[in-house]
Design a binder for these strands. Sequence first.
RNA 1: GGAGAGGUGGCUGAGUGGCCGAUAGCGGCGGUUUGCUAAACCGUUGUAGUGGGUAUCGCCUGCUACCGGGGGUUCGAAUCCCCCCCUCUCCGCCA
Length: 425
Amino acid sequence: MIDLKLLREQPELVKAGVAKKKFPCDIDAFLELDRQRREMITEAENTRARQKAANTTMSALPKGSPEFKAKVAEMKELSAQVKELAAKLEAIEIEWKKAYLTIPNPPFPDVPVGTSDDDNVCLEVWGDPNRPYPNAVPHWDIPWFSKYVDLERGTKITGAGFPVFVGDMARFVRALIQFFIEEDTKAGFIEVSPPILVNQFSGMAVGQIPDKEGQMYYCPLDDFYLIPTAETSVTNLYRDEILEEKQLPIYHCAYTPCFRREAGSHGKDVRGMNRVHQFDKVELLKWVKPGTAEAELASMVDHVCGMLKKLGLTHHRMLMATHDLSAPNAKKIDLEVWAAGQKKWLEVSSCSIFTDFQARRANIRYRDEEGKVHFVHTLNGSGLAVPRVLVGLLENNLQDDGTLLVPECLRPWVGKDRIGIPKAK
RNA sequence: GGAGAGGUGGCUGAGUGGCCGAUAGCGGCGGUUUGCUAAACCGUUGUAGUGGGUAUCGCCUGCUACCGGGGGUUCGAAUCCCCCCCUCUCCGCCA
């Protein structure tokens, strides 16, 4: 939700910002609705005030006296009016709220205005995608791949897009998670291990319901959703709370499995592990004071890039153009890893500033030293998503003998420096 | 899943139909006293919406809402009724 005061006082500014994004929303229509709502509130509350005042007078009269009885009869009329106005107000409020929720967060001024991926701006490249990767093949073409990532049997158990990691690969996945959590913790992110089923309210607070409801798995018996990212759970950690200024900034990291229906994307990127329905991810989240968000985003991106460097993965930072921003995003930087076999960049992390947009929805505030209450600003980013990092390693690190070279930083947890089956000589 | 108890402001805890946005205590903030600290005493103390004022972005002020959530009864609900959620105790069941 955007700041109502800003919207009322400087609608042109908001309109200009919102127009850069690709979301349908009619701000003039909303402002008209807003005017009606306020008018209705005034009327309903004035009537209610009269009722309350009359009730106070009434309570002084002896009960059962003729005056009292006359007053009761008189009050019935007013009571009916109050109820009628309250019902009218509620109807307007529902419409108003619905319209309010559709207004996206305007992007920051430095976000490039764009309509396609070509408009995204590359900020930095680490490594060289053009250098030779002599053994690179798309990961699904690695001879031993299906023995270690069993997509066939995953299909038997659940359906397409639910990989089964086997043996050293299961251990490798666990090693990645471990590595990410260790690095994140060292960088000051406090680990949390949240529920991976959330109720409807949590989904709404983050903005995934109703917008992306169709992308989430749903348990009707209990009315729970499987989370598409730890963001959904962890953003709600401080929902409806007023934090103390000295608590900020708060940094958390959380490992969870993530579940995405990926409805509408069948046939696209479905081979191998590029796009799966269940995957492991460590998410980074920050709750910060307004004004510090840019610096916090930069340090988050630096930290995540640091992990990619330790893994030796060629990657670049992309400042995403407006067409790629979700409704709550004010600014987004994606990190993409070079997958030498497929010869394409794969998104492994997406770091975003939400300003106070999510905080308003989730009602997360802080009290400053003067006792005044403000909304916090939230940020989050992946740190990191397992399957695509794995794809990058599989496609870039294949050795002449056909095995996968385990990056130094993962060896303590993998327990060996090569995995996979060597080619027969 | 069954039985019972309960859910009130930052916390503890009163309140069983109107005088209750809510007694009191603690904590917090401001002050007096004091060599400092503490104690004592005095004052103050939530959030949101909406209207008005203004020395106009910060403050003053009116009103409304909020006593786990939702509905109902009533002229009037923290208080009565119904449904749901949560916590605690006991029993049962099961990783």
